[in-house]
Design a protein around this nucleic acid. Sequence first.
DNA 1: AATCTAGACAACCGCCGACAC
DNA 2: TGTGTCGGCGGTTGTCTAGAT
Length: 332
Amino acid sequence: MGHQCCSKQKVKRGLWSPEEDEKLVRYISTYGHGCWSSVPKLAASLERVRDKVSGLQRCGKSCRLRWINYLRPDLKRGCFTEQEERTIINVHRILGNRWAQIAKHLPGRTDNEVKNFWNSCIKKKLIAQGLDPNTHNLLSRNSHHYVTNNIAKRESDSSIIHKHPTSIFSLYSHILKDTSLSSSSSSSSCATHDLKIITSTNSLEYSNPTQNSHALLEFLARTRSSEMSPLMISSGQFLPPNHSLSSGFGLGNDESFMSNTSTSSCILQLPQFEQPETNFGVEESTSNEVMLRSIDQNKDASNSFENYSNFGYDHFVGCRMFSSFDDQLAWD
DNA sequence: AATCTAGACAACCGCCGACAC
DNA sequence: TGTGTCGGCGGTTGTCTAGAT
């Protein structure tokens, strides 16, 4: 069955011939592409003007696809670079299979190209590294425990904290949104208060929880203010260039996250988590968000708490949590 | 040499939202 | 408000090719 735009016409399908490409390029360079559905017809007229017998017997949709994915002059052909590959992985971790959005981070690359590269190459690499290509978490023998949380859902459902009582981030972000708490506390005391609640809730289930989550949450509290600029929690394991898999958390801005330059972006570093399965991912992301992510264990974190406030990100929006603890450690 | 298979890439299909009428 | 058209998108399929058997 043909497309709506060409159901009444006899159209050719399959691979494009060099002659067809030539006709399409000639048409686009002459008239541009204001209306794809009219391209084949007008292209045929153009060819008749040029004393050619046949026009362009393709549907408009096919013309559009051919132009965007192959004929556009600003396309970058050839293999993906390592940098591009890292960018794809990092953005995919945040956005999922939103290929068009991912492709926007890669000048000269198309969504189709990125998608094909992902399916034929990156996916297998991640699996080979023991990572789930869908979640970017470590593949586990056990079933994954998934806790999702964001402000929008929380605000529409005040009972969510009871649904996920032991998610440190659920709890924490919930508390941050609690105006009575924040208005009655200074920034630091609020942080302490929050941490007490959180760590006491999780101390039994989470092996060595306080040392890691405590510092992380303290950091989150300190970055908080009444202004609501976004801060995102992101990621868990990741593979810094030329380093083995490590875990921990760090703060980076969007740019550094995309380019995977951990050293410049890490301003907070925490000891390695005891459970490598523990992982964190974002609900969504924009260019203004900060990514909190796992970082290279070996980097110096001596400036951890001093610098993050300079980033200007100060509101914890929320995050979702993945984990794959054994049943006896199940958080709910 | 013929056939099979897997990988890479190109193209199509169906759905959806935006928009015009 | 309902309907049709269009462009954009993601999933899927088709095609080609190189390497293995």
